[in-house]
Structure formats: C-alpha cells, structure tokens
C-alpha cells in the first residue's frame, strides 16, 4: 500500500524546472511567513490554505502519476488543464502571496535576478501586451481552442516537447489572467482595470468555453483518437471519456468565471463604500463599461 502511494507521488516525467519553481516558491513563502510573523498584513489561515492547495495541485498535475493519467485519459487531461489554467492559478492569486513572498525572497534573488528581469524593457513591454484587456481574454480562450484542435492535440500528446509547451502555456497564462482579474487592484506597470471591464472579460472567456465544452460533450464524432493511439489508462468507452472531458471543459471551467465575478463584485461594492465618505461616488463609474 505504502509503495503504491509512494510510486504514485513520484514524477512520471521528471522536470527539474517544475521542482525548482514549486519547491522554491513554497520555501520563499514559508520564509516570508516566518519573517512576517506578527505583522498586520500577515496572511491568515484561509489565504495560506488557498496558496498551499493552489501550488500543490499544480505540482501534482505536472509531476505525479496524475500526469501519467492525464496523458492516457482525455477527461483527466481536461481536469489537468482545469487545475493548471483555472483552479490552481486562481487560488494562488486569491491568496495574495506577493507580500509574503517579497518578505521571503532572499536579498540576492530580488536584487540580482527578479528586479533586473522585471525592470527590463522587454519584460515590461511583453507584460503590458499580455495583460492588455483585449489581448488577455483572447489569449485565454485562444489557448484552449488551440490545444483542443484535434490535429494539434494529436501531436501534443505524442511529442514530449510539445506536451510540455502545452502545459506550461496553460499554467503561465492562467497565472497572468487571474492576476489581472482578481490580483491586486492597482498593479505595478499597468493601468487600473475597472471592475465593470473585469466582469466583461470574465464573461468574454466564459461563452467560448461553454461552446467548446458543450460541443465536445455532445458531438457524436470521436474527436481525440490520440488516446486510442497512446492507450487509455484503463478500459473505458472512448465516447464516454470524451463526454466527461467535454463536461469538465463546459461546466466547472465556465463556473470559474462566475466565482471570479462574485469576487470582483464584492471588491467593486467595497471600493464604492470606501469612496463614499470621501465624497467622490462617481469615481468608480468612470471605469464602468457603459462609458
């Protein structure tokens, strides 16, 4: 029993990059927690839990046997992308780990690596481009459509480099997108994105996901024959596999937009309340989509 659990937790295809990034983030966060003890902005139980679940779930789908199952079962692959593109990044961003991580990051890392990379004009330009309110949602749904195009999906599952590019693109885009929507409200290097526009962006990514998910779930055509080529992890009807995968793309993935919209709505109301005593109730409406 112990051996089974142990072998399940071992990487299917070991990636030093994933290990260094995940373990490094965890260590920096823990160090930040220790150093920030007693501070008023120290995260509480829920924020720590959200960060831990987000990070561990992303690691698990990249580096344990869940990765193996994702390669040999379409619906588990969809679950993998739900975690890498939606759930994991969303939880990490919601935990607002930036304060703790800034505290925990070693001086040399901040001074000689992070700061120069961040200040580099190429990084700045690229970041502003990717976080553009029009490009961000297009990229978010574009990646889903791209990797689910049957011919592209076919080769992505057969070629290890392409498979890695697929998963990395999902994880990075997930972090960027949710950072834009539910990250800090005023972000370094970006113009303030109004709450109404955030809602609009969430709605814009939801509709295509419903369309794609429903099509995959309801079509009578077998779209992803590559799982027959690779062999499924256990015997299951290919159409059942595809149907469940479609449902995962359709319902929980688009529900994420609803959950995020509630978060944005709560922040919107809070900012209005905060603004009222200052006597500027119109300030928020300036950014509303009706304008």
């Amino acid at each position: 029993m112990f051996e089974t659990v142990f072998s399940f937790l071992l990487p299917w295809e070991f990636s030093p990059t994933v290990l260094v990034l995940c373990a490094g983030s965890a260590l920096i966060y823990l160090r930040g927690l220790v150093r920030g003890r007693g501070r008023t902005d120290a995260p509480g139980f829920w924020r720590n839990t959200a960060f831990a679940i987000g990070l561990v779930s992303m690691y698990a789908f990249l580096q344990t046997h869940l990765d193996y199952l994702s390669q040999h079962m379409f619906w588990i692959h969809r679950l993998q992308h739900l975690v890498l593109h939606h759930l994991g990044p969303f939880l990490i961003v919601m935990s607002a780990p930036q304060v703790t991580m800034r505290l925990g990051a070693p001086e040399w890392l901040r001074r000689y690596v992070l700061a120069p990379v961040w200040r580099n004009p190429v990084t700045q330009a690229g970041y502003r481009l990717l976080q553009n309110p029009v490009i961000a949602p297009v990229l978010f749904t574009g990646l889903i459509i791209f990797w689910l195009t049957p011919s592209i999906h076919f080769t992505a599952m057969l070629s290890l480099p392409r498979y890695n590019v697929m998963n990395w693109s999902m994880a990075i885009d997930g972090l960027l997108f949710w950072w834009l929507i539910v990250g800090p409200e005023h972000q370094a290097g970006l113009r303030f994105l109004g709450y109404g526009r955030r809602m609009l962006l969430l709605w814009a990514i939801m509709l295509p996901q419903i369309g794609i998910g429903a099509y995959i779930a309801l079509t009578s055509k077998l779209l992803y024959s590559v799982y027959g080529v690779c062999g499924r992890a256990w015997p299951i009807e290919p159409m059942t596999d595809q149907g469940i995968g479609g449902l995962i793309t359709w319902i929980p993935a688009s529900m994420m937009s609803v959950v995020a919209a509630l978060v944005v709505l709560a922040r919107w109301r809070r900012s209005e309340r905060a603004d009222e005593p200052a006597g500027t109730p119109g300030a928020v409406l300036v950014e509303a989509p009706s304008r």
């Binding site: 193996y68 599952m157 290890l160 690779c230 062999g231 256990w234 015997p235």
Partner: peptide
C-alpha cells in the same frame, strides 16, 4: 508515449491487456 495495463484474471486465469 504509449502504455499498457493488465485486466483482472477470470476463473480460468485469462486476462485482458490494454
């Protein structure tokens, strides 16, 4: 990038392989 797996043996000891 392919896999195989063994099914449970029946009464005669025969089993399927995916």
């Amino acid at each position: 990038r392919v896999t195989f797996g063994y099914g449970k043996p029946d009464a005669d000891g025969n089993y399927e392989v995916s």
